[in-house]
Design a binder for these strands. Structure first.
Lengths: 191, 191
DNA sequence: TATAATTTTCAGAAATTTCTGAAAGCTTAT
DNA sequence: ATAAGCTTTCAGAAATTTCTGAAAATTATA
């Protein structure tokens, strides 16, 4: 299979960006190629188009499946396995977002939780633990917010992402609705 | 300088997570150490505490400065340069968030923009470009939303992050306020 | 201005990650 | 059961990233 110049540029770019998004070059390329190709592809086609080894494709597909980004399917009269993206662009983005939340936030939250359990022994430790507490609080909120975003319907998500400068207006709206008197916001920052 | 067991666990963990957050192990460790240490540290202290070479510390500090995460300062009667975090945890998080937006979104947006400029030559290319268009639309919205978040005041940000399940309620509120008839929402999606 | 203190640089070493290809393992068809 | 077609595995090779340490550059002091 031949890649047009444009497709190639896109695929290569995704390969380069891949590492920033959490997977390696060839996995990024594979995902990009599957995304812009109208039909499902099998492992041999991927290997040929990307000029990488069959074994590498196998590992890459495994990785993409562990991210739940691709789906396997069989084509009638063909014993090979074919692969295509596991959903719309929006669904895929949501999956990547969620997967990254898990990988980037959860482990640190769990470490910090355990660190904060037992009491500091000296003033050095007290200060360190104070900072860890601040980080924990922040990360936990980010985590909760990310979870919220993931639970929004596609429409709601679209609305939110399209708010533009409306985000701060929306917050004002909220304040005016609920009234400033409700001051006991237990989650407010202390800084 | 000796690290307590707890501090060491934290510093090492940040080293491991570092790569997921965009910097390498020792840079992550340096940042963690500077964050939980009450006083500024110089390069030699960092090298000794983390048991890494002086040259590595120099490069790491350069990296942290390029992220604008640390600030240099001089202590009276000492020619060495001392370093400490460039702000509160919240400010630092905002900087990391913004820096990652730049590194993870901007390059792809710019590639896609140029790819979408000239017309597809055949049906393969047409399909590929359609997908690229969808990705572009999505990334641009995420980018705009991220920018919005970055412009919120600390209080607004706290409010938003603390909304919890209120996010979707807030969106309903917005809809009910504006009414579904007010269709000329300039920031609405075009899909 | 010379010298001592400190930081930066960067070539090569070490560590880590990614990739290949041949062999082993499945699955389906005969 | 055997073979053919396809997929996975994994040891070692290749590529990439990170780290070291000595030398060069910079900055401050005498």
């Amino acid at each position: 299979m031949e890649l047009s110049a444009k497709s190639q540029a896109f695929v290569f770019h995704f390969g380069e960006m891949g590492s920033r998004w959490g997977f390696n070059r060839t996995v990024g390329q594979m995902f990009a190629l599957l995304t812009i190709t109208p039909t499902p592809l099998n492992a041999d086609q991927l290997a040929e188009a990307l000029k990488i080894s069959r074994g590498n494709v196998s590992m890459g597909l495994k990785e993409l499946q562990s991210w739940r980004l691709v789906q396997r399917q069989h084509l009638p009269g063909d014993r090979k396995e074919y692969f295509s993206p596991a959903g719309s662009i929006w669904e895929l983005a949501r999956i990547v977002f969620e997967e990254r939340r898990k990988r980037e936030l959860t482990p640190t939250l769990s470490l910090l939780r355990s660190q904060l359990l037992d009491a500091p022994q000296d003033s050095q430790e007290r200060h360190a633990q104070e900072k860890m507490g601040e980080i924990y609080e922040l990360l936990e909120r980010m985590d909760g917010f990310a979870n919220q975003l993931n639970e929004l319907s596609p429409e709601q998500l679209t609305t939110l992402l399209s708010l533009g400068s409306g985000v701060s207006k929306l917050l004002e709206l909220k304040n005016s609705m609920l009234g400033k008197n409700k001051a006991q916001d237990s989650t407010a920052p202390e800084s």
